[in-house]
Design a protein around this nucleic acid. Structure first.
Length: 566
RNA sequence: CGGGGUGUGGCUCAGUUUGGUAGAGCGCUUGGUUCGGGACCAAGAGGCCGGAAGUUCAAAUCUUCUCACUCCGACCA
């Protein structure tokens, strides 16, 4: 391929709306073009990167006996009504009508389509287990696209669905798939991707893992133990705390004046936030009824754990006079207003704490949970914290990092097969519902993540396995006949040998040529120039700066082939 | 959905406060000189200033409405 004819502009200025480096570099490097919020067209370089990622995924899925299929993008509402998700999923799903007024949706995930595809076929236990997967476009009307390809509304995803006749079989396959995913990330050049325990969200099911690339631009918070192998998404992370025992003290009402926040109250009473019991208020989305969570003053509520416990969605409360709640002075003792009260485990066994007295301007000191609020049930509702206690090894070794989710795997159970009436006859002649697993990887997001993990100020540094081309051949001073003739010859030889080479023989300055090469991030750069020709040499340089050598003109072809193959 | 911000040649942006003939740099075209890290000189092309309505002798600039994009939050297989 000649760079001269490569469609797509490369440019110098960083677009102001780009906060994320991969976003800026992919626009600047002519990888993609903005079309609409969260929607991009891909130019050839990005298409080639994505194709290589897809091929790696395909090979690894085939290796664990996946069968590639293709589901439709447009689906009738009816199969989504069967699973119940037509109503449970909100505005995130694109919905429209066909000319006859029938309801259609654009696929944002394909569990329904997968069950629809195999439910008549897989009617006997003999046909199990099996896994089907596709690599295809997903459409999601995201509330807030961001970060270039990190979060978009239209994207390519590999999604796989496995079907089993026993939980043990699913677990075995899940583990196989977990390993396949590790191979995929390693092959794509990001072996540092880790798997973490995750919350299952709208997919349903019990056990799930997310594959995370740790980076400050990530949208998820990841809790990692530095001592053992405990790793979890913040959403699903257990919070363990020590008992807050500050000795015996009587429950005493004190005037705290205008102090309302935990910081103000604790400062006024010369205590640390850990010694307080704070109240965090929510309202159920369904009926606006109040939910109050009491937890230790230095902790925050993990809203995912809260909604999982309640079984419904909530929003932060808007407290008014009619609620009877004394905002800023709310406490568990003598609480009379109407609300659901929940207690976080961090308060269990707490002694001599500070809490609101449910009266404006007053707090209690000496709150002792068992004595003053007897018989309550405690739940784990707090967020894990930096330096917190690891739920597995019990040491104060938790750290919290940001991560981008580049894949996930779920044990779905029978949620979809039951809802959609998929059954098979087992060995005893009885009807059973198959157990499902599902496995996703976002291709574009992975490409952007690799770029994010491997770039410098000048451009991406693509790993060889997914680089758009293997060799970037630069012919400096193409107006010099001897130089140009040699570069042409080298280019033709490399092409004939099946090497992917991008050939730049434009008559432009070295600065332009090199900065374009930096933006394209191809691992091996070959520089043919009059200066090198005079020495009878060709220069080979790695984009990642791991080497920069001159080789004799006569050996150049062999040396390049060797570098590409190694 | 709530709160900010921004829409001006292909790109990055000035100009808007205080209304008065539409600007710069990059890119593009042509000619010339350069040439190993985004060269230089000269000559060009290219914009009804997101859209609509209004105020005014006069609107990129003021008013109202609207659309799009973006950031923070909510939401998120």
């Amino acid at each position: 391929m000649k760079l001269e004819k490569l469609v797509g502009d490369r440019f110098k200025e960083r677009p102001s709306e780009c906060l994320v480096d991969s976003h800026a570099l992919m626009l600047r490097g002519g990888y993609m073009k903005f079309v609409a919020s969260g929607i991009f067209s891909q130019y050839m370089p990005l298409r080639r990167v994505c194709r290589k990622i897809e091929q790696i995924i395909r090979e690894e899925m085939d290796r664990i006996d996946g069968q590639e299929v293709l589901f439709p993008v447009v689906m009738p509402a009816s199969i989504w009504q069967e699973s119940g998700r037509y109503s449970s999923i909100g505005a995130e799903m694109f919905r429209f009508k066909d000319r006859n007024g029938a309801d259609l949706v654009l696929g944002m995930t394909h569990e329904e389509a997968a069950v629809q595809l195999v439910r008549e076929y897989a009617n006997t236990y003999n046909k199990y287990p099996f896994m089907i997967y596709q690599i295809q476009t997903k459409e999601r009307d995201e509330a807030r696209p961001r970060g270039g390809l990190i979060r978009v509304r239209e994207f390519t995803m590999k999604d796989g669905y496995s079907f089993h006749t026993s939980q043990e079989d699913l677990e075995q396959y899940y583990e196989k798939c977990h390993k396949a995913y590790e191979r995929i990330y390693a092959r794509a050049g990001v072996p540092e991707v880790i798997s973490v325990k995750s919350d299952s969200g709208m997919m349903g099911g019990s056990v799930s893992h997310e594959f995370m690339l740790l980076t400050p631009i990530g949208e998820d918070s990841i809790v990692i133990c530095k001592e053992c192998d405990y790793r979890s998404n913040m959403e699903a992370a257990d919070s363990i705390t020590e008992v807050s025992d500050y000795g015996d003290a009587p429950l005493t009402k004190v005037n705290t004046g205008d102090a309302h926040t935990i910081e103000e109250v604790c400062a006024a009473l010369k205590a640390e936030p850990k010694q307080s019991c704070k109240a965090v208020m929510y309202q159920k989305n369904a009926d606006d009824s109040f939910v109050i969570i009491f937890l230790r003053g230095d902790l925050d509520v993990n809203e995912t754990k809260l909604t999982n416990l309640l079984g419904c969605d909530v929003h932060p409360a808007a407290v008014d006079e009619n609620s009877g709640i004394a905002a800023g002075c709310t406490g568990p003792v003598n609480f009379t207003a109407k609300a659901t009260l929940l207690f976080d485990s961090s308060l269990k066994g707490g002694k001599n704490l500070i809490c609101g007295a449910n009266e404006d301007g007053y707090h209690y000191t000496g709150l002792t949970m068992e004595r003053d609020v007897p018989g309550v049930e405690y739940h784990d509702l707090a967020k894990a914290t930096e330096g917190g206690i690891c739920p597995v090894c019990g040491k104060h070794t938790l750290s919290v990092s940001r991560g981008v989710e580049v894949g996930n795997i779920f044990m779905l159970g029978t949620k979809y097969t039951k809802a959609m009436g998929m059954q098979y006859t087992d060995a005893n002649g009885e009807l059973q519902y198959p157990i499902m697993g599902c496995y996703g990887i976002g291709v574009g997001r992975l490409a952007a993540s690799v770029c994010e993990a491997h770039h410098d100020e000048f451009g991406p540094i693509w790993p060889k396995s997914i680089a758009p081309w293997q060799v970037h051949l630069c012919c400096l001073r193409a107006d010099d006949e001897e130089t140009h003739a040699y570069a042409n010859e080298l280019y033709n030889k490399l092409e004939d040998a099946g090497i992917e080479v991008l050939y730049d023989d434009r008559n432009v300055s070295a600065g332009i040529m090199f900065s374009d090469a930096d933006l394209l991030g191809i691992p091996l750069r070959v520089i043919v120039s009059p200066r090198n020709m005079k020495e009878g040499a060709v220069e080979l340089a790695a984009r990642d700066k791991s080497f920069r050598d001159k080789v004799p003109v006569g050996d150049a072809f062999e040396q390049i082939v060797k570098k590409v193959k190694e």
